[in-house]
Nucleic acid binder design. Structure first.
Lengths: 165, 165
DNA sequence: GGGGATATAGTTCGGGTCGAACTATACAGA
DNA sequence: TCTGTATAGTTCGACCCGAACTATATCCCC
């Protein structure tokens, strides 16, 4: 079975959380990975099942109540994740941006830029908040990725300002 | 049938080209929309068929040789595209970035940043080239989206420099 | 003008992804 | 106990995607 980047995102989150249910993963990603690797929440129900089948996660289901499934890394999962993290290969980034697409096709960017600016500012505040207050912000990788994220939003704000006003 | 953002990207490209085969679309996107709305080339075989079925494109197939299919906008297609372009709604942008994901999970960004920097610089040169020389660069929307794209790559270079060195 | 190399063009396939819609459970406060 | 709200979990089918492959056209050297 093939491990995609999204698979590693899931393995990485399980690693950070120690043990996690799909819902835990959903909540955790919203405050982190979502910002640079979007994953729809339904993936957290399907993908861990796949990963468990492949031997990368072990699965334990609650007996009663919500019958939640709890996942932890297996040795194979830990190794696969570590190998991926250690390899210096990284595909080029992809930007998906409707504002740019509409602008390209003749839409008026001025009509969209106010909302976009507000969005970037909110993101900026959010990431800054994590940097100041988040449990994981002590982790050097987390910290660095937050800093790059902050720089990205700042940069985009500057570009929009310059180009559209 | 549902029109996705990718549908509008296809309609927009057909509009720009006047008439287009899937292969024309593939080549055209590589120099434009790909930069802010990635679409795999197989989509250009499937999606126009869907759009033709929905009445947004008309389809004409060559009799002999490669039996290429040529697409043009119908009136309905032109109207749907115009309405979408005119509406000021734009979903927030999404960034997909393996370097950031790996960094977040503890990977060493320094090991990846040289390649990334080179990539951004190549992109920068490419977009700058379009701005200087491309047939469509006269179009104000095209020009503006190129300028924003250039700003994005410049910004990312600056961020990487600052954060990772 | 034969023939191989290269570029162009097109398609198939199966697994992965996606979001909308829905259902179910927990729990706090009236 | 009831009810509203937040939390939690799932299903479904359409869509998307990339790898691999096949086919056609063109170039260019002999």
């Amino acid at each position: 079975m093939r491990l995609t980047t999204t698979s590693y995102a899931v393995l990485g989150l399980v690693d950070l959380l120690g043990e996690a249910t799909p819902y835990d993963l959903k909540r955790a990603i919203e405050q982190s990975i979502e910002n640079f690797w979007p994953v729809p929440h339904t993936t957290f129900y399907a993908e861990p099942t796949r990963l468990a089948k492949g031997g990368y996660l072990s699965e334990r289901q609650e007996e009663g109540g919500r019958r939640r499934k709890h996942y932890t890394l297996t040795q194979a999962g830990r190794e696969a994740l570590a190998a991926w993290v250690a390899s210096p290969a990284a595909a080029p980034p992809e930007l998906h941006d409707e504002l740019l697409l509409k602008t390209f096709l003749g839409g008026d960017p001025a009509a969209m830029v106010a909302e976009r600016r507000a969005w970037h500012e909110a993101k900026l505040a959010e990431l800054q908040g994590y940097l100041d207050r988040h449990v994981l912000a002590g982790d050097p990788g987390v910290k660095r990725s937050l800093e790059i994220g902050i720089g990205y939003h700042r940069g985009m704000l500057a570009v929009l300002e310059e180009t559209i006003g």
